[in-house]
Amino acid sequence: MVKVLVTDDAAFMRMQLKDNLTKLGLEVVGEAVDGADAIEKCKELRPDLITMDITMPEMNGVDAVKEIKKLDGNVKMIMCSAMGQQNMVLEAIQAGAQDFIVKPFTFERIKEAVEKVF
């Protein structure tokens, strides 16, 4: 089973993501509340996939992606952010994210991103 770490500062969003990912047959093994927390939980839980918000209080998601890439080159990352401007998407993809979902998202969009990555 694909192990997922969900990262978002909003508990509501983590719940939404967890519901959608579980429905797709993925196992959500942890939740992180900001970029720094995602780095720690990534080391600890060794997920196959991380969903990454951008706007978070301690370390934004793009910086976290860069750090996580250095730690584990194999982990897949999907951005999930309310900000969708082109330079932001490009920066995230260059940092090592595989896809970029703009909030609010649909179940279909999550499904498409997961299928693209695996």
Binding site: A10, M13, M15, T55, G84, Q85, Q86, V102, K103, P104
Partner: peptide, 22 residues
């Protein structure tokens, strides 16, 4: 969850705003 949703609603609207003005 209502408080968290409210914050996220603000985040989504402001995020969309930043995308639009870009």
């Amino acid at each position: 969850m209502l408080t968290s949703f409210s914050g996220e609603l603000g985040n989504m609207i402001a995020g969309g705003l930043s995308t639009n003005v870009a």
